[in-house]
């Protein structure tokens, strides 16, 4: 067989092997890496890793919100808003999920890669 053809085959093999092992490494090392990103009135208030329990107090546009991160899930414990929609919202834990407090202009969103530009 032609020498360059042998090199071609080696080349293909090497690239495939490197890519596959990179995929394996990123897959097995892929910690969730998800975080809760809090914005108030469009500005970033803070980002908190979901794998660490926390209690976060937020000064919203109208009043205060208390957010808890527990067992990889985030939820609103209390809010000074009238509707209390945010308090009644289900805990969020998956990328793209949100809890919204419109009166306080607060958005809690889970950031993480799920390959979607938006989740509805």
């Amino acid at each position: 067989m032609n020498k360059t053809v042998v090199r071609d085959i080696i080349l293909v093999g090497v690239i495939l092997a490197v890519s596959l092992s990179l995929i394996l490494i990123t897959r097995t090392n892929a910690k969730d890496g998800k975080e809760l990103v809090i914005t108030v009135d469009g500005g970033i208030y803070g980002a908190y890793p979901l794998d660490k329990d926390a209690r976060i107090e937020i000064n919203g546009a109208e009043g205060k919100l208390v957010v808890m991160i527990e067992d990889g899930k985030a939820y609103v414990v209390s809010s000074t808003c009238a509707g209390q929609d945010c308090v009644h919202s289900k805990p969020v834990s998956h990328a793209g999920e949100r809890i919204i407090c419109l009166p306080n202009r607060v958005i809690l969103q889970i950031k993480g890669d799920n390959g979607a530009d938006v989740v509805i």
Partner: peptide, 22 residues
């Protein structure tokens, strides 16, 4: 579209288990 292709819209799982489909 995006430079890398089509837009991806995720449809929520109604039970809150992440994405139902994309």
């Amino acid at each position: 579209r995006k430079p890398e292709g089509l837009w991806k819209v995720g449809v929520q799982d109604p039970d809150g288990e992440g994405l139902f489909t994309k």
